[in-house]
Design a protein around this nucleic acid. Structure first.
Lengths: 221, 221
DNA sequence: GCCAAATTCGAACGGTCGTAAGACTTCCCC
DNA sequence: GGGGAAGTCTTACGACCGTTCGAATTTGGC
């Protein structure tokens, strides 16, 4: 019945499409969670927006909570992968001791890239930021427990500025992430206002450089 | 029936206690909202914790939403009053042109003071931070509309650093507030961990100075 | 073209929610 | 001390929630 059923008849596409319904639910839920928050979006909202049956969420994901956690895990992994890649490249360029600004760039560039108006991950970044603070206890536990990703950055920052104490690095890294995570919807709107209605890629690049200037100076204080 | 009924028989206390039940609801709701979020706390949770009747919320505040907005308005006004007072004093000390660090201190010191472990407004700060991002549409509208308070600070910052463009000041102020608003519960916990279980007043002072160092350097970039 | 597995569907269950209505009690002023 | 306002209480309404179940349908291998 679905308009894409005929195209999905190729069995080789299974790895990508992998249950069209499951993907429709995933995408619709991510969007609605990002726009309105986890508690303000019902399973009925999600399935209605996705154009699928009400029971699909529980059939494919187990529960509403598990769906949220699934989206969060995937998007966080994607984001951290891009960050690790940039950090790795910076390490390669500088014999394992990249300068401060390049470490910070590896941390901030991927999420800022996602923020670009035509980027397909724009809504995903808003979802991740929102899920970080409004998510379930399970998400909060993961955020507190799994700090291995952040440790790579704090190590690199400590190598770039060996005169700083680990406590200094920890807090300044925390401040830098605060600058980033505060970019909620109201701020996206302000980005739009500043650009007179249309946020361009250039604006995002400018914002990234503003953040890098501020954070780099903060670390060098 | 209430244990405080006999003491409340003095009519002169009315200005302070002003309907004991209303106050019990206010305090209990603020605490529960701060700890668990607006959507995760029901009217029944609030009235049970306050030891009052279920209908008290709607009788004294009109609705659950109005209760949240009431708490938010009062606490925000208190916070902004303390900030304005510090900024005013800094103006007096420096003939209307206080140095950058004193302006930033007027912005950050009040909330950091509230963060002290034995401060009676500790839970209020957590409430305000949470309500800012998880609150109702009405709260978000007020945050976007009523920027008069922030404008006083951006003006003072612009006077302290006249070489910066208004856009620079706007974004760097935004970054500074991000550093502050990111102090959610997970970070309070980390504060405790760093202090081996007991956050002292000194830790809060140290944190304030860390933030001031970072933000001041960021503005001077 | 058939059978079993996978998926989708309609419907409903048990629960919790915010809010309101009405009876009842307490308080205060004349 | 009587009466009216203010506050408290019980109760329940109507709506929405996440989840489940069994039937209907589709899919994929032989």
């Amino acid at each position: 019945m679905s308009p894409t059923t005929d195209a999905a008849s190729h069995e080789v596409e299974a790895a990508e499409t992998e249950a069209a319904t499951k993907n429709l639910v995933f995408v619709a839920a991510e969007r609605l969670f990002a726009l309105h928050g986890f508690q303000n979006v019902s399973v009925r909202d999600i399935t209605a927006a996705a154009g699928v049956n009400l029971a699909s969420v529980n059939y494919h994901f187990g529960s509403k909570d598990a769906l949220l956690f699934d989206i969060f895990k995937r998007r966080t992994a994607e984001l951290n992968r891009e960050r690790a890649k940039m950090l790795h490249e910076a390490n390669d360029r500088h014999d394992g001791n990249p300068p401060l600004r390049e470490v910070l760039a590896a941390l901030l560039t991927p999420p800022l890239r996602w923020l670009a108006p035509d980027h397909e991950r724009r809504i995903s970044l808003q979802f991740v930021i929102r899920a970080r603070s409004e998510g379930t206890d399970e998400i909060r536990t993961v955020l507190k427990t799994d700090v291995s990703h952040l440790r790579r950055f704090s190590d690199a920052l400590l190598r770039a500025r060996p005169d700083l104490s680990p406590e200094d690095v920890y807090w300044r890294l925390h401040f830098t992430l605060g600058m980033l995570h505060n970019n909620r919807f109201a701020e996206f709107d302000r980005l739009n206002v500043l650009s007179e209605g249309q946020t361009s890629e250039a604006d995002v690049v400018t914002l990234l450089e503003r953040m890098l200037d501020f954070a780099e100076a903060g670390f060098n204080a």
